[in-house]
């Protein structure tokens, strides 16, 4: 940890509009150095727009961006310390993976060729085939390899797994943990496959309709909600006062997910009422929170199709 007090990236009140569409609506975030962040949200929530701005590749309509404490648009050195792998990363038309890696090695000061070579072997990537002839999965592998071997202080992956099969994704996650342990850096992973990456994340940011819904330590989120199941009347009596994230009912049986931590007294009380308490996995918690927020705030001038 270099400067534990100084965030790697800090943004304040970011707004971004494309004509009449609001992509980001007042986003304030601070990403601490040397952590793995998960940026989660539905399609069109504003993830990619936010990541472009976080990496100094896009401009906000208004708001402030500081990367390592400086304005990325006025500081040449900043961009070489950041690696952003887009979901549909473009490479020069006739490049082969070998040439793309050579170019990346010139750009990123901490490039590690040995790591790149190891990953090429792991993914069985054909080095001399032209990139435009690669399969979707192989193309994703090129992005993953550049992102990891860049060892950039800030590395951002936007859905890096498209076309990668389960084995290749596991290789990616395993190598990421290994390499991060040896070379800590700030990593942002945006993904729909929350349960696959949940254990790797130290911090979770959930964005919805251009706003931050959740910005919390992954381990404090786990256990921050509980599902209460049992007789409907008993359940309703028990959950009074808690924020309800989700309700399921089956005849006289109800299962309600509430936000909150229950103490030992409440647990014993639930047991005496014959109620079952079950923990809520991170993936479900994110889905429930997003859905609850959507139910609470009506859709405004935001278009779902926005990418």
């Amino acid at each position: 940890m270099r400067h534990p007090s100084e965030p790697a990236i800090e943004v304040r009140n970011l707004k971004k509009s494309f004509r009449d569409v609001t992509a980001l609506d007042g986003v304030t975030l601070a990403l601490e150095p040397d952590r793995i962040y998960g940026l989660l949200g539905r399609n069109g929530a504003g993830k990619t727009t936010l990541m472009s701005i976080l990496t100094g590749q896009g401009f906000p309509s208004s708001g402030e961006v500081l990367i390592h404490g400086t304005d990325p648009y006025e500081n040449d050195g900043t961009l070489a310390r950041i690696c952003f792998i887009r979901e549909s990363q473009k490479y020069p038309e006739d490049f082969t993976p070998a040439q793309a890696f050579k170019a990346a090695a010139l750009f990123f000061a901490h490039w590690d060729q040995e790591l790149a070579d190891g990953l090429v072997a792991d993914f069985a990537l054909p080095l001399t085939r032209r990139i435009k002839k690669l399969s979707r999965g192989q193309l994703s592998a090129v992005g993953v390899i550049i992102g990891m071997a860049s060892r950039a202080e800030i590395t951002v992956f936007d859905e890096p797994y498209l076309g990668l099969d389960a084995v290749a994704r596991q290789i990616f996650y395993d190598r990421l943990v290994e390499d991060f342990a040896r070379h800590p850096r700030t990593i942002v992973l945006s993904s729909h496959l929350i349960d696959e990456i949940a254990n790797l994340l130290e911090h979770v940011v959930v964005i919805d309709k251009g706003r931050i819904l959740l910005d919390e330590d992954a381990d404090s989120l786990r256990g921050s909600a509980v599902a209460v199941t049992g007789n409907r009347e008993a359940v309703e009596g028990f959950i009074g006062g808690y924020r309800v994230l989700h309700r399921d009912a089956l005849g006289s049986l109800a299962s309600v997910t509430i936000q909150g931590r229950l103490g030992q007294t409440q647990r014993s009380m639930a047991a005496e009422l014959g109620l079952e308490l079950s923990p809520v996995p991170l993936q479900q918690l994110v889905v429930r929170t997003t859905m609850a927020a959507q139910a609470e705030t009506p859709l405004e001038n935001h278009q779902e199709a926005l990418k």
Binding site: D174, P184, N199, L200
Partner: peptide, 11 residues
Amino acid sequence: FAAYYRINPAT
């Protein structure tokens, strides 16, 4: 531990 359980080393 991190590598074995595939979890974040900080955790």
